[in-house]
Write a protein that binds this DNA or RNA. Sequence first.
DNA 1: CTTGACCTTCCCATAATGGGAAGCTTGACC
DNA 2: GGTCAAGCTTCCCATTATGGGAAGGTCAAG
Lengths: 139, 139
Amino acid sequence: MNIGEAAAASGVTAKMIRHYESIGVIPKAGRSLSGYRVYTENDVHVLRFVRRSRSLGFSMAEIKQLLLLWRGRRPSKEVKRLATAHVVQLRAKIAEMRAMVKALDHLAAHCHGDERPECPILEGIASPGSVTEKARRMS
Amino acid sequence: MNIGEAAAASGVTAKMIRHYESIGVIPKAGRSLSGYRVYTENDVHVLRFVRRSRSLGFSMAEIKQLLLLWRGRRPSKEVKRLATAHVVQLRAKIAEMRAMVKALDHLAAHCHGDERPECPILEGIASPGSVTEKARRMS
DNA sequence: CTTGACCTTCCCATAATGGGAAGCTTGACC
DNA sequence: GGTCAAGCTTCCCATTATGGGAAGGTCAAG
C-alpha cells in the first residue's frame, strides 16, 4: 500500500501521515525501491488508532504515549490515568466555555439588537459589573 | 504612561500590547522622543476591552470588529449578531467536547486500571463499537 | 558615571493542519 | 518507445495567540 491508499483506508490524510511520522508519533514507514512510503494493514490500524484518539481530543503527545502503552502491553492503570487526566482537562475547558456562554447570553439578552448604537454587550465588555445591575440603576 | 505601566493597568502583557498593535487590533501608540510607546487612560480602556473580549473567547479578528463597532457607535444589531454567532460556535465546541467526555467516561468505566495489560480504553480506541457490547459478548 | 530596570526590534517556538511548488515515479494508452 | 496524468517525494509557508530570549538603546537613582 502506498501513502494514498493508506490514507483512504485509515481516514488520515497523506499530509498528516507524513507529519505524524516526522514528529515520531508513528514509526518511519518502509520504502519502495523508488522511495515511496509503503504501508501494511497493521500500519493502517495504527493510523486509525491515531485518528480516533484525535477525535477524542487527545494531543499528539498523549497519543504517542497511548501508542506506546498499546504496543507495550503496559498496565491498564497507566492508560486509565492518562485518559482520566484528559477528561479532567476537557471538563475544565467545558466549564470555562460554559461560563463564557453564560456571560454572553446575559449580555445579549439585554441588547435590543436594533439600529441604535447603545449596546449592553459592548458596555458590559468595556466595564464589567452586572448589566442587570446597570439596567436597574437606570430605571 | 509607558508600555509597562499600561500593561500593569490593563492586565495585558507588554508583549501582547505590542503584538495587538502589530496586527492592527489597536491603533499605533504614540511615541516619546526616545521612541518609547506612550499610552493614555483611554488606551488602557481599550486594552481592558481587548482582555475581557479574549476572556469571553472572542478571536482577535472578532475583537477587531468589536472595537470598530464600539468606536464607530454602529447599530447594536451588528454587535448582537457577532456575539450570537460566537455563542453558536462555543456551544458547538462544548457539545463536541461533551461527546468526548461521554465516550471517554464510558471507556474508562470498563477499565480495571490495574496491573494487567488488557485495557478497554485502548481496545475501544483501536476498534470502536460499544465496549459494553464487547463485555457482553465475552461473558 | 555607573548600574539596574525598562524600553526597542527581531527571531524563534508552540500545536495541528493545510496549501502549494518543484521534481521524480508509475501506469496506462497509443 | 513515448507521452501524459496522477501520485509520490521534500521543502517552505501560513494559520492562532502567546511567550522566550537576544542585542542594543534609555532612564533614573545613586
